[in-house]
Amino acid sequence: MDVLVQGALTSAVIALVALGFSLVYGVGGIVNLAHGSFFMIGAYSAYAMSETGAPLLVSAVVGVLAATLAGVLLERLVITPIRHQEVAVLIATLAVAILVQSGVQFFYGGLERQLPGFVSGAVTVFGVTLQQTRVLAGLVALVTIVTVLLVLTRTPTGRMVRAVAQDEEASRLIGVRPERVTLYVLAIGAGLAGLAGVLTAPYGVLTPTMWLLPLTQAFAIVILGGLGSIPGTVLASVVVGFLDRFVAFNVKDGDIKVGLVTVAVILATLVLRPQGFLGKVAR
């Protein structure tokens, strides 16, 4: 039961990161290696605000906004000029990730930091005792994901995004501007990752290299679910989220083995089914 409840909560947070990563790939064909940095920017910005004495809620909002702004800047300044050069985009976004890492280390040093909890104490659900911050994180993430999915499937904007994801040229013919959609999606994806960073900041630890694990997990999810597939992303997030908690609970020193399991998932998927388990053949 522990694993089930915790797994569900973790899945929701992971999906928050992976959804943006997957959407950006689907829409712009862009694999953004700086996606994990949005997670980190969200967390550290919220931390920085709370250090100045700002209320936690304000800090959280600032965190999300900072990540969104970073997404916009990344798209405008770095990705747009080299959009069609796949490997250049990969190298440039990895360089951005390292640049952000170096900046964070400059301002905050390499030490671990933690954000105070939005709520404190424990709550018991289905007989499982949980930290309230984790429950809050999971619930907020869940609501956000459902909202995003509804927007994607039910609104004209969402259909536009999916149209671009399916066929950029065709969507151009019906008057959609894929460049614009890429900007929106990157900004929103960054905001979602930033939100995940803010939500986990009270129980995770903040370090300058914290961007790598969410990026790896997003990658695992995306190859498991198929690049660019939204239902695939959500389902794979659940798989990775449960695996994450399962390992954390059942293996000695599980918490630090999570990343390892993720990579094992990645390599196994790549060997067995490079197109992902749910996705179509990768474009």
């Binding site: 790939y25 694999v31 290696l33 796949e86 490997v87 990969l90 990895l94 790598l212 694990l213 990026l215 790896t216 990658f219 695992a220 190859i223 990343g259 390892l260 993720t262 990579v263 990645i266 390599l267 790549l270 490079p274 990768a282």
Partner: peptide
């Protein structure tokens, strides 16, 4: 290719 290879190699080093 490209992004898959990039992420796979990056993840292994992380692991």
């Amino acid at each position: 290719k490209g992004p898959y290879l990039a992420l796979a190699t990056l993840s292994v080093a992380g692991a």
